[in-house]
Design a protein around this nucleic acid. Structure first.
Lengths: 342, 342
DNA sequence: GTGAAAGCGCTAACAG
DNA sequence: CTGTTAGCGCTTTCAC
């Protein structure tokens, strides 16, 4: 039914050894025979069985990427980055969703190990406990989570990113800045909150619980948080949402209630997803170099696999000026605001 | 280094056959020994090598999902659907991006075949030529593309969906309705355009080239198209964007130019992505049952793999009322519009 | 340059 | 109930 090296050997009248050599371009066959073998194999529609090959090679040319929630636009952009270098390295990329439950995550990882994947990248932004040797022997790297010891990582300084976002609002004269949290159990959420706090404290501004609103990194949570912010109002003139999706939820709520952004309320996000350019108004945000994060992570993994020394990588963020932040009448330093793009 | 059945056999003093039986819960071992084997194996940290197992089983318990552009939010939602039933079926799901170039697509498929995946789902919305036996022997199903003959498919009636979207605008009194196209080379684009045309013609409305604007299924293209629409204006009071992402681009452009939606221009999309609920204003759109499409496709594939008879599946769409469409002063029939949600 | 044979780790007859 | 023995399809020594 399916044609194997045996069939090719028989058809050519040669041994499977020669066939294998020829098909893999390995030396030890005369150019002439090699050519003949390749041609006949092609004619017969021979396709090597990678499973058999992997069994002897003890390598599968396959790496896995575990992503917490493919539905969040941040991750697909990350995937693109990983994909591009995986392709270059001729590795097949398996994308799968990572259970947030560390126990189930470990199971998935074990399954991958049994499948003999050559390496694993886990996007651990939404993972809390940095669990010891999650990887249990297989080469692995963490993406979007700072050094957890057990494996090299590629990430940005989340606390700093949040700090910068908040600084931006402060420089525009805002004195009461609300923060929409990420999911409470995540390390990133805590880091981003801390960055916001640091910026506020440093500027002598309040950063107490009254200014903190629950969120979930999704539009829904941002929308909800905004409802509460708008209900309370409480002198708040700006909000720093823990990520862009939350910020989009905030914008949606404002629109629904006729609160105009940035005139009545300034909004800043964090992530720099593509979509942020197409909100109304365009979202001001602190962007992570998303694609590059993916690329570096994959390159790093390839290094680890080949046994090269590998250290942690931390990439810089940068502010992207949209039209969702406006100078507030207060004092405040900073240059005059960009008043929107219309 | 890695522990194998041999090591376990040695440790228990039994044969590899018994070990294999016990580990797989197959009959032919006494409960007592079986228990002992399992325990010892666990202690030793034994992990079966799936590659070896696959070689003999001639099955990998793995299916692949080829998606054109994971960056378009439509697809991640689809993935979720597929994932859920793949999990139930204990199949590992490989997600990979499908080159739009049919030649490179064929290569990818060939690679998957060599990897011995048990089946493949190809999201073919963005594929033009329905190429004969793309699958070349491996069980496969098409997702989001109507019957192409070579493999069963799961889809919605795209022409009808577009027709419904346009009908909705017409029922709100709009008489000059622009259409933002999808990528020109795609079959879906043509179908959606045709649906728009049918609705217009049927109502005695114009559907000529002046009303058709290029797009790319992305925000960018929608934004661009909107610029042209607003520049020309030309009596246009509503636009039907070929997909939600395009519609989002249109909304962004309107916002940037101070054109209010739906007061000055009504906008309707097609897809029903999650995000459509959080635009400003919330997008009115014809929704595909995205998750269910994924679920059905995977279920169908599982059927095909197990040799069960499998027919094409067509799922219904439904209108989701947002706040981006408003009744137009003209005549028009239909019930009074929902004036926005604020 | 070419072939015979061993073996990757596992499952599945077939004997005992 | 348990062990021996063949392979699955391929790569790779090791002889010739």
């Amino acid at each position: 039914m399916v044609v194997t090296v045996y069939d090719v050997a028989q058809a050519t009248g040669l041994s499977i050894a020669s066939v294998s050599r020829a098909l893999n371009g390995r030396p030890g066959v005369s150019a002439a025979t090699s050519e003949r073998i390749v041609k006949i194999a092609a004619d017969m529609g021979y396709q090597p069985n990678e499973v058999a090959r992997s069994l002897v090679a003890k390598a599968t040319q396959t790496i896995a990427l575990l992503v917490p929630d493919i539905t969040n636009p941040f991750f697909p952009e990350l995937v693109k980055g990983v994909q591009s270098v995986a392709d270059e390295g001729d590795q097949l990329l398996l994308l799968l969703d990572a259970p947030s439950d560390p126990h189930r995550l470990a199971d998935r990882l074990a399954a991958l190990r049994r499948k003999q994947v050559d390496g694993v990248i886990v996007v651990a932004s939404e993972l809390d406990s940095a669990d010891d040797d999650l990887f249990h022997g297989i080469p692995g790297v963490f993406l979007d989570r700072a050094g957890s010891g057990s494996a090299p990582s590629v990430s940005v300084d989340q606390e700093q990113a949040a700090y910068l976002a908040t600084r931006h609002l402060i420089s525009r004269g805002h004195r009461r800045i609300a923060h929409v949290l990420g999911p409470e159990n995540l390390a990133v959420s805590a880091l981003r909150r801390r960055g916001w706090e640091r910026a506020c404290h440093e500027a002598g501004l309040p950063a107490d619980d009254d200014l903190v609103f629950h969120g979930d990194f999704l539009e829904e949570g941002g929308f909800h948080a905004a409802e509460q912010i708008l209900d309370a109002r409480d002198g708040i003139t700006a909000v720093f949402a823990a990520n862009d999706l939350s910020a989009i939820g905030v914008l949606a709520c404002c629109a629904a209630r006729g609160v105009s952004v940035p005139e009545d309320l300034s909004v800043i996000g964090l992530d720099g997803i593509e979509l942020a350019r197409f909100t109304a108004p365009a979202l001001t945000t602190v962007a992570q170099p998303i694609r590059e994060l993916g690329e570096r992570a994959c390159a790093l993994l390839l290094d680890v696999i080949s046994g090269a020394p590998a250290g942690d990588v931390v990439l810089p963020v940068r502010l992207i000026d949209g039209a969702s932040v406006q100078a507030h009448s207060g004092d405040g330093g900073g240059s005059p605001t960009n008043g929107g793009q219309r």
